[in-house]
Design a protein around this nucleic acid. Structure first.
Length: 109
DNA sequence: GCCATGGCTAGTA
DNA sequence: GCCATGGCTAGTA
């Protein structure tokens, strides 16, 4: 697995319950601010095997970005169970719920 | 060529 | 709603 991919996975695993990060934010933390779509691809293909909290990742507006009805519903439910309540437009208030990892976190022990 | 983005523009009210 | 972006993978030679 490539270093960028490993960093992205470590960052996603570090998102605590009850908070979210955005695709672009994760890419930036992993060292490639323009690689938001790569974060998408990693989540899409590896969230199961690596036991990632995939539901804690949303787009830059705070919206659930999943495609199908079923997936959208599942993500919304998992977030609500952690106390993340979207407002009426299904928008999550990033000011309240966005996780900002410390620069040291996710690096080598 | 994939992809669950993101940032900007045009068009409407 | 359009389109540039980018790390990775599959498929071919």
């Amino acid at each position: 697995m490539q270093p960028f991919t490993e960093r992205v996975i470590a960052i996603i695993k570090g998102i605590p319950p009850g908070s979210v990060m955005t695709y672009g934010q994760i890419a930036a933390c992993a060292g490639s601010p323009r690689a938001a779509r790569q974060v998408v691809r990693i989540l899409h293909s590896m969230s199961g095997k690596h036991d990632l909290p995939w539901h804690r990742v949303v787009n830059s507006k705070g919206e659930i970005a999943i495609q199908g009805e079923e997936g959208r519903y599942t993500q919304q439910l998992l977030l609500q169970e952690e106390g993340v309540e979207p407002s009426l437009g299904r928008i999550i208030d990033l000011e309240s719920f966005q996780h900002h990892p410390a620069p040291e976190s996710g690096k080598a022990e």
